[in-house]
Amino acid sequence: MSTPTPAVVERYFAAVNAEDWTAVGNLFTPDAELAAVGAPPRHGREAIAAHFPWTLAALPVHHDEPTRVVVAGTVVLVEIRFTGRNRAGAEVAFDAVDVFDLTGDGTTIERLTSWYDTAAVGRMVRAS
């Protein structure tokens, strides 16, 4: 028996893929934290929402595709296949893992950690 993906996590990926940064921010609690590899921690909805356009600026084409979701209470682990193109049009593809800590009712994100190989991604982003 599989546990369904929490709706807030589904909305998160839909908003990131649509570049709806306001919607992304609204999925987090007011005092939420984002800890992404290679970036300083972000605190609060506005700082979290501002992180995404800054991070994805070098990837004008991007898509996060959840490939596996593991739910353990209010913790949701998502394996992701990222595909896109850098500014030069070169393909970028890598795997990542996001770990969501949800509120007790599961409707809002309290903390998100994001894990991927920053060195390999950096090389792909800079490729021409």
Score class of each variant (00 low, 15 high):
residue 51 H to V: 00
residue 36 A to N: 05
residue 39 A to R: 13
residue 115 W to H: 15
residue 17 N to H: 07
residue 121 V to A: 09
residue 117 D to T: 03
residue 24 V to Q: 02
residue 51 H to P: 04
residue 51 H to N: 10
residue 74 T to P: 03
residue 46 E to H: 06
residue 26 N to Y: 09
residue 81 R to I: 09
residue 3 T to R: 13
residue 120 A to Q: 08
residue 6 P to A: 06
residue 91 E to R: 13
residue 120 A to Y: 02
residue 36 A to S: 14
residue 107 T to V: 12
residue 45 R to L: 07
residue 78 V to S: 00
residue 26 N to K: 14
residue 125 V to Q: 06
residue 69 V to P: 02
residue 63 H to G: 06
residue 31 D to G: 08
residue 85 R to H: 14
residue 115 W to E: 08
residue 52 F to W: 13
residue 45 R to G: 08
residue 7 A to G: 04
residue 88 A to V: 09
residue 40 P to R: 10
residue 79 E to G: 06
residue 59 L to H: 05
residue 110 E to G: 04
residue 88 A to F: 09
residue 32 A to F: 05
residue 103 T to E: 05
residue 71 V to S: 03
residue 38 G to F: 08
residue 82 F to T: 04
residue 122 G to T: 10
residue 89 G to H: 02
residue 111 R to V: 02
residue 67 T to E: 10
residue 64 D to T: 05
residue 56 L to H: 08
residue 117 D to P: 03
residue 55 T to C: 11
residue 14 A to M: 11
residue 53 P to S: 13
residue 24 V to D: 00
residue 67 T to F: 05
residue 123 R to C: 05
residue 67 T to A: 09
residue 4 P to T: 11
residue 126 R to A: 15
residue 39 A to L: 13
residue 45 R to H: 09
residue 89 G to M: 08
residue 55 T to I: 12
residue 15 A to I: 13
residue 62 H to T: 09
residue 38 G to M: 12
residue 65 E to G: 11
residue 9 V to D: 02
residue 91 E to L: 11
residue 103 T to K: 04
residue 12 Y to E: 12
residue 98 D to P: 01
residue 12 Y to Q: 11
residue 91 E to M: 07
residue 43 H to V: 15
residue 52 F to T: 03
residue 53 P to L: 11
residue 59 L to E: 08
residue 110 E to A: 15
residue 92 V to G: 02
residue 97 V to K: 00
residue 127 A to G: 10
residue 115 W to Y: 15
residue 76 V to P: 01
residue 107 T to H: 15
residue 56 L to N: 11
residue 75 V to I: 14
residue 99 V to M: 13
residue 44 G to D: 08
residue 56 L to F: 15
residue 4 P to S: 10
residue 49 A to P: 01
residue 110 E to H: 09
residue 80 I to E: 02
residue 24 V to G: 00
residue 5 T to V: 14
residue 8 V to H: 04
residue 80 I to G: 00
residue 74 T to F: 03
residue 82 F to A: 00
residue 18 A to F: 08
residue 67 T to C: 08
residue 41 P to W: 06
residue 101 D to H: 07
residue 6 P to M: 09
residue 16 V to K: 00
residue 91 E to T: 11
residue 81 R to T: 14
residue 25 G to T: 03
residue 104 G to R: 11
residue 25 G to A: 11
residue 77 L to W: 07
residue 27 L to A: 07
residue 49 A to F: 01
residue 66 P to L: 08
residue 75 V to C: 05
residue 96 A to E: 06
residue 43 H to W: 10
residue 43 H to I: 13
residue 57 A to P: 04
residue 36 A to T: 06
residue 28 F to L: 12
residue 38 G to S: 08
residue 128 S to W: 02
residue 45 R to Y: 04
residue 72 A to N: 13
residue 53 P to F: 10
residue 48 I to Q: 00
residue 46 E to P: 00
residue 29 T to A: 14
residue 60 P to L: 09
residue 9 V to N: 05
residue 44 G to A: 07
residue 50 A to L: 15
residue 57 A to W: 12
residue 37 V to S: 14
residue 56 L to P: 07
residue 68 R to V: 08
residue 70 V to I: 12
residue 57 A to R: 14
residue 92 V to R: 00
residue 114 S to P: 02
residue 27 L to W: 04
residue 16 V to W: 01
residue 127 A to P: 08
residue 20 D to H: 05
residue 62 H to A: 13
residue 2 S to A: 11
residue 54 W to R: 15
residue 16 V to R: 01
residue 21 W to S: 04
residue 66 P to F: 07
residue 42 R to H: 12
residue 97 V to E: 00
residue 93 A to L: 05
